[in-house]
């Protein structure tokens, strides 16, 4: 299988390549339009700041390209947030694949630390990404901004309030958590994505 990982100015992209390698898949890291269009699967990963990432993507025409991809696409963490309509981080318009805003966590009590960092549980996991899941599985999160629950939510997680742990619309999938850092549970999610 031909898997392409979108190369852009976000951190922690290599951990996705490593995770795929552990599943026996040698993915290619690229920002080349043709390679991305031709791939069987595209992963849009990363960690970073939304407005910087968006201007980088726009400068290279990657924003339009990602929106028009037809094969299964998986956004991870900042990748999920960039696939939404708008982000409060840097007050920036994003790709708009999911018509929902990205909001900043607003702590209500002293124990609500931001970033939301660590292992938290999936609730109501649906969609083929979570084939075989029952709910309650732990996955690894690191983020200060979140996508509220919306019509495309296919798994929720509770932190300060319920938010979208994962989204799905047509060929687009996205997770707020890092499947590549979520041990065997994360491996199952990546494998499910590859087997879609």
């Amino acid at each position: 299988m031909n898997v392409a990982v979108v190369k852009y100015n976000a951190g922690n992209i290599y951990s996705v390549l490593h995770a795929l390698q552990r599943l026996g898949v040698d993915a290619v890291l690229t920002d080349d339009a043709e390679t991305l269009k031709r791939a069987d699967r595209v992963i849009f990963p990363g960690q970073g700041e939304a407005s910087h990432a968006m201007s980088y993507l726009r400068e290279r025409g990657l924003d339009c390209l990602i929106r028009e991809l037809k094969q299964p696409v998986l956004g991870i963490c900042i990748g999920q947030q960039l696939m939404c309509r708008h982000s409060e981080e840097g007050d920036v318009d994003c790709l708009g694949i999911f018509d929902v805003p990205v909001l900043r966590f607003r702590p209500q009590e002293a124990q609500h630390k931001v970033p939301h960092m660590g292992w938290n549980q999936l609730e109501r996991p649906a969609a083929s990404l979570f084939r075989g899941f029952l709910g309650g599985e732990f996955v690894y999160f690191v983020h200060s901004f979140y996508v509220p629950v919306c019509p495309w939510t296919v798994a929720e997680t509770q932190y300060i309030e319920s938010f979208s742990a994962a989204l799905h619309r047509d060929n687009f999938y996205a997770t707020q958590f890092h499947p590549e850092k979520s041990g065997s549970v994360g491996e199952r999610i990546l494998r499910n994505f590859l087997e879609l």
Binding site: K181, S182, G183, G186
Partner: peptide, 8 residues
Amino acid sequence: VAAEISIP
């Protein structure tokens, strides 16, 4: 470690 271990 990064290549072989799947937790942070």
